[in-house]
Design a protein around this nucleic acid. Structure first.
Lengths: 119, 119
DNA sequence: GGTTATAGATTACACCTGTAATCTATAACA
DNA sequence: TGTTATAGATTACAGGTGTAATCTATAACC
């Protein structure tokens, strides 16, 4: 089993990053919008435990799940992967693509300029 | 067979985006750095044809492969997928993450500011 | 205490992907 | 023209992923 987080698993991670620990039932409840069978969610939780990306504490017969990897680290790692894969590591190209293809509000533009000033 | 381009397949696509049409041998030659068996590359070409992301013209017994999907469209689609998946669609967050975590040269910063001006 | 509901564990199964080896037809060479 | 090299097609096979159903043990209820 690899220890990469699949797309579906990431959706489960988001729930636990938002709030934890949670029982599987609570996770299922918070994923209602996904329209996944409860069994499916439990499979994901199980696999994620095996991958070592989440852990749990037993509480009676139930488990209380919590994230092990940090959201920031995950985002960093995904971002770098994406940067290398799609933009061959060229940050400028990546930024230009997003700046040009997405509508940015005046506020956002101002905010980003400020960030650039600080660099 | 899905019509998404896998990671390995994308590497093959890059070759054809750079130059096409190419025979499988030429593609193999341009992928020497990948250290893939020739058979492996041919499998990828085959699958990509089935997925409809590349096409070919017969030239005698050989095929001349060419991309069907455009690089720009691919990048757009991957970028949007990434944006939604990792940043929940929030471009500002995405841009901030890359601006803050990557070293940008003065030139790059100037260039990006210029882009922002134009928005 | 016996029965039932439920929690997590195990099993299932098809499709995708990485990574080739083998098959089959034919072009090219001797 | 018979043999061989080679092109693409087909087959292989393990591990990951989506999507659950079934198994097994136990907590909870009657």
């Amino acid at each position: 089993m690899s220890n990469r987080v699949s797309e579906s698993e990431q959706i489960v991670m988001e729930v636990l990053w938002q709030e934890s620990p949670l029982t599987s039932q609570q996770v299922v409840a918070r994923l209602e919008a996904q329209d996944w069978n409860e069994k499916t969610v439990k499979t994901f939780l199980n696999r994620m435990v095996k991958k070592g990306v989440i852990g749990f504490e037993k509480e009676g017969r139930k488990y209380l799940y919590h994230p092990i990897i940090k959201r920031e680290e995950y985002i960093q790692s995904e971002s770098n992967g994406f940067l290398n894969k799609v933009f061959n590591g060229n940050v400028k190209d990546l930024l230009a693509t997003f700046v040009q293809n997405k509508q940015l509000s005046k506020q956002e533009i101002a905010y980003l300029k400020e960030l650039l000033e600080k660099e």
